[in-house]
Design a protein around this nucleic acid. Sequence first.
RNA 1: GCCCCGAUAGCUCAGCGGUAGAGCAACCGCUUCGUAAGCGGUAGGCCGUCUGUUCGAAUCAGACUCGGGGCACCA
Length: 647
Amino acid sequence: MSEPFSAAEARIAVTLPGGRTLNFPRPVSGSDIAAALGKSEAAVAISIDGKARDLSHLVEGDVEARLITRDEPEGLAILRHDAAHVMAEAVKELYPDTQVAFGPATETGFYYDFARAEPFTPEDLAKIEARMHEIVRRNEKITREVRDRGAAIAFFRGIGEEMKAEHIAEIPESEEVSLYRQGRFVDLCAGPHAPSTGALGEAFKLMSVAGAYWRGDPRNAQLQRIYGTLWAKKEELGQYLFRLAEAEKRDHRRLGRELELFHLQEEAAGSVFWHPKGWRLYRVIEGYMRGRLEKAGYFEVSGPQLLDRSLWVASGHWEKFREHMFTAESRDERVLALKPMNCPGHVLIFKSRLRSYRELPLRLAEFGACHRNEPSGALHGLLRVRAFTQDDAHIFCTEEQVASESIAFCELLLSVYRDFGFADVAIRFADRPTVRAGSDEVWDRAESALQEAIEATGLPYTKNPGEGAFYGPKLEFVLRDALAREWQCGTLQLDFVLPERLDANYVGADGARHRPVMLHRAILGSLERFIGVLIEHHAGHFPLWLAPVQVMVASISEESARYAGEVARACGDAGLRAELDTGSEKIGYKIREHSLLKVPVILVVGRREAETKRVMLRRLGSNVQEALALDEAVARLKAEAAIPQDA
RNA sequence: GCCCCGAUAGCUCAGCGGUAGAGCAACCGCUUCGUAAGCGGUAGGCCGUCUGUUCGAAUCAGACUCGGGGCACCA
């Protein structure tokens, strides 16, 4: 490309990604640079020496610059942020008595929080969206102004935007206070923004209204949050809406009903009614886990559901976890709590007799049924319930054993996830929360021990500050499903506090009493939640070893019904979960019916198969049939349906 | 728990002041059929619960329960 300017006055060098350098007269704006590169249309902002700026930003000296365009994630985020402003402008035009609070971009769009006495209705959303399109068509210039903070506060007070004024007071002195103006709307904002509202395009849509607390604090006023989605192109918006519709189709609550797995009803809000097929699935998973744990050196135990208040006081739960606990009273008026966690029970088993260091690490596992009194608004299908069963275990060990136990646990966990079809697992390190038990010294020790342990596994992880359990720091294992959604399931928590509080100890090689360390760990987390995730991940189409009904034998007409029975029996004898359909419907109807119920294998048998002792094997999702000898089909399916026992 | 929205047959939904409708499913017949919906018929609802307004409420109002989307909380 030829150089756009040739004058000999003061010039600056702009270095682009890849090392190419352009010379411009000083000063040069981001727009000039974009124009020089022929990218005026696509550019929404510019990165100058690593900092995102408006295109109107003037460059005064030699810099490194990179255009931010609408087709890359960073540019899209800026457009989404622009959309939040445009929405706020539309709302202020339509409902001038509204105060604006906070409006960022999100992963799929944007939102803005508003304070207004009247609730926004769905009809209001339609009006706001229409007005947004109008503002985009007006193509208002978006300009940035830096203000002295006193003046800025006075300005927002003057226009009745108290929350904005309050927000300015919190901006660190080191940062400048900038205002963005478009049409008659002025917002406090760090930027950057696209040069004009026309940049938004048309690929956006307002989605919903929700309540949200001012600064996320429930003690503050509740605002109305309007969510929207925005994409670079209309097709991408369409794809996003299509993905939402697809996600709804695999919603575990819908599939739970359609596949007859479970149901929920108000008489037991937050607890699951497992139906025969769902319970079958549950038990297969439980049995699989039991096998894995036994091989990994765990001992399964089972503790009481109701334990006396005094234990919970001693463990610290009564103080830190009281509001989540269900309580009951005995005849003699003792207060008992339905266990929300299994750990105190396991400590009591550990303490039931004198323990030797030779027994460590002692791994006590339990499919522990727990109850937590979750706030009603938190309940959500199987994913958030009040009664659930954890694949829980507590490892009592010495501090020296923490690293090796952690490594072994991580290996076990990843192998289990692989068996269930989850390959993508993220690890987060969650450190001390505000509400916690134990001294800072103990937390220092626990955090560094857990940190060493995770480093020792060699697995990548990120930090999740302040999210630890009240008794110790934890690793959270987050799996990503087929729709790239994240679910926290597994956990590994290091606890110096509970053994201390419940006075657990063992006799060491030196003959003295020592305090064991406790590792709390779960792989699936709660079986309920994990099954919910599993249903959505597989869209109800489970791998053969998990499918509640593995094989459906369907006869073509009455003359093959008898042989169909034989086939079903042969499958059952081989340990397959097989069912028989000899009804009078046509075969097409049967196939449709069992396909909708997501049975992975349908064996079709008619006169030809009966005569030759064969079956016609048909897999869910395919319309290819394979003719096989009965024996061979059964042997193959049996092998395929085997429960994975070790990777 | 908080904000908004919702609750009508097993499911999906229509009806929105004059006392309940469709499709699918269910059940009963007929059909015996070769790979994702054969045909006909029957039955099925205290319109989430309670209170109020009204001559009259599925329909309007209020409260409650549960559900949904969020917030906060969290496995």
